[in-house]
C-alpha cells in the first residue's frame, strides 16, 4: 500500500487541489485505509471465538439439555454456543488465506491500550476516592499524551471539564455518583 501510515496523507491530498472523480476518490480512501488485519489475526480471533463457543457448550451441558419437546434451561444456550463454535471453525478454514477485513495494529494502537488502562483505573479508584481526581487525571492524560495538547491547555481544559461535570451531575442532577467534595 503506497500511502504507508503517515498521518498527514489527507492534507496532502487536499492541497493538490485536483478535482477527483468518485472512482479516484474511492481509491485514495482505499489507500488511506489501514491495512487489513491479515491471516494471523484472523486465526487468533477465530480461535478465541471457538474457545468462547466451547466454553458455552460446557456450561450449557451443566445446566441440563432435556429433550427438544421438553427443553431444560441449557438447551437454547447449547444450540447458540454450537452455532458460535461451528461458524468459528468455518471462519478458520475459509479465512486462512488472509482476511481482507479488520485492521492491523499500528504504533497508535498503544493509544487505545493506554486509554483502556486509564478507564480501568478510573473504575477502580472511583468508589474509593470519588470521581473528581480520577476524572481529572483521565482528562489530563488523554489530552496531554494521547491528544498532544500543550501542558497549559491540557491542565486548563481538564479542570474546566471536571468542574462542568460536577456542576451537571452532582449539583444540578443530584446523582449519587461517588464523590470527594
Amino acid at each position: 500500500m503506497r500511502a504507508d501510515h503517515a498521518p498527514h496523507v489527507e492534507e496532502a491530498a487536499v492541497q493538490e487541489e485536483e478535482i477527483l472523480t468518485p472512482e479516484q476518490l474511492a481509491e485514495v480512501w482505499a489507500a488511506e485505509a489501514p491495512e487489513p488485519a491479515g491471516p494471523v489475526a484472523n486465526l487468533l480471533s477465530s480461535l478465541v471465538a471457538l474457545a468462547l463457543g466451547m466454553g458455552g457448550l460446557v456450561l450449557s451441558l451443566k445446566l441440563g439439555l432435556g429433550t427438544p419437546a421438553e427443553p431444560r434451561p441449557g438447551m437454547w444456550p447449547f444450540v447458540v454456543s454450537l452455532v458460535v463454535a461451528v461458524l468459528s471453525v468455518v471462519q478458520i478454514v475459509i479465512g486462512r488465506t488472509g482476511g481482507k477485513d479488520g485492521e492491523k495494529f499500528s504504533a497508535y494502537s498503544w493509544y487505545a491500550a493506554i486509554g483502556f488502562a486509564t478507564l480501568v483505573g478510573m473504575v477502580l479508584l472511583m468508589p474509593v476516592i470519588g470521581f473528581e481526581i480520577p476524572s481529572l487525571l483521565l482528562c489530563f492524560i488523554w489530552m496531554r499524551w494521547l491528544g498532544g495538547e500543550r501542558w497549559r491547555s491540557a491542565t486548563m481544559y481538564s479542570i474546566l471539564i471536571v468542574g462542568a461535570f460536577y456542576a451537571i451531575f452532582i449539583a444540578a442532577l443530584g446523582t449519587t455518583i461517588p464523590r470527594l467534595f
Binding site: 486509554g115 478507564l119 478510573m122 473504575v123 472511583m126 468508589p127 470521581f131 476524572s135 483521565l138 482528562c139 488523554w142 489530552m143 494521547l146 491528544g147 498532544g148 495538547e149 481544559y157 481538564s158 471539564i161 461535570f165 451531575f169 442532577l173 446523582t175 449519587t176 455518583i177 461517588p178
Partner: peptide, 23 residues
Amino acid sequence: GAILAPITALITMLGAYTIRNSM
C-alpha cells in the same frame, strides 16, 4: 478531537453509573 475525547469518555462512564447506581 483531543479535547472532545475525554469529555465523551466521562459522559459515558458517569452516565453508565447513574442508570442503576452501580459500579
